[in-house]
Design a protein around this nucleic acid. Structure first.
Lengths: 165, 165
DNA sequence: GGTAATCCAAGAACGACTCTCATTCTAGGC
DNA sequence: GCCTAGAATGAGAGTCGTTCTTGGATTACC
């Protein structure tokens, strides 16, 4: 399943109330408040069908300054609420962690404009990949592995632009 | 197979003469010289068992200034001689393209220090992944896909550091 | 209501990378 | 071997994404 194909717009719905509750609980443990700014960052990311750059998050909400977005995403990433996605354009993007968004997925990246979309793999293939990743990390002495099956290509918009410049 | 496990040192051997010849031919078509600096960049990358940052390349050869490394790697990446690898630390690393290094591989990344190592997947799994990637990109309207099965974790050195700070 | 902790915005600082420009090198013609 | 045009080089300035700092605003808790 592919989210936000073609156009680069954001979805309309905000984050599930349960998601907010879980994040608030996590923050409480760390003695941090679930502030309006923090909630806004979560809502923007939850309502987008794809990982967003700090700049995109700040643009989506007038009340969010760029430094607030960076600070908040940093804290939330530390807590495991957000995941940082390294794009091919050197700009990092943020998305809700899989534990909160409740669907395991990988990324489809455009090597021209840096767009990042989500997709899901068939369960059988996912299982085989996971087993292979475990074997490989163990052999290399790595710990705490997480695998990513990223696919890089040209998005429809950039493909069109290359064909008809 | 894992290259350069544990210690982060570089291999000793330089690039295969055939590799140099092929790169020189590619550069000639573009009216560019295969200069000593350019050759040094290739040698450093070919003799390393893992992708290197621009800084690491410059450090490996006293005669290479950082701007020369960035300029040269840019040209060589355009030609398809080098591949740029986006690390988890936001620093890009370079390696010989698979066409030249003649082994298809993926990357093992340390989320702490950013180290990138190479590894190879069993052929059967590689084939299944490739087929899945084709299906997914076609459905999303992407073109020219290239898939990457990156595994992220803590390298042995960083695992040790976390255990005994 | 008081106060201590946290949050916030603005802007400075930082670092990776790119660009600029004066100098050096080199291929190819004499 | 010498000349010259054009490519390559290195130092340093500039750009841009990201992080840090600071001083004031807000909030939780008493």
């Amino acid at each position: 399943m592919i989210a936000a194909t073609g156009s680069h717009d954001l979805r309309q719905s905000a984050a599930d109330p349960v998601v907010h509750d879980r994040i608030e609980a996590l923050l409480r443990v760390r003695r941090r408040r679930y502030t309006p700014r923090c909630r806004e960052v979560i809502d923007v990311l939850a309502s987008s069908g794809r990982p967003l750059t700090a700049d995109e998050v700040a643009q989506a909400e007038d009340s969010l300054s760029i430094s607030t977005v960076y600070r908040t995403t940093g804290v939330l990433a530390d807590l495991g609420v957000l995941r940082s996605v390294a794009g091919v354009d050197g700009v990092s993007r943020f998305e809700l962690s899989e534990a909160l968004s409740s669907h395991h997925h990988h990324h489809l990246l455009c090597r021209q404009c840096g767009l990042v979309l989500d997709y899901e793999l068939p369960a059988a293939l996912e299982k085989a990949l996971h087993a292979a990743a475990l074997r490989i990390t163990r052999r290399a002495g790595f710990t705490g592995p997480a695998e990513r099956f990223d696919i890089e290509g040209l998005c429809p918009t950039c493909t069109e632009l290359v064909a008809n410049p």
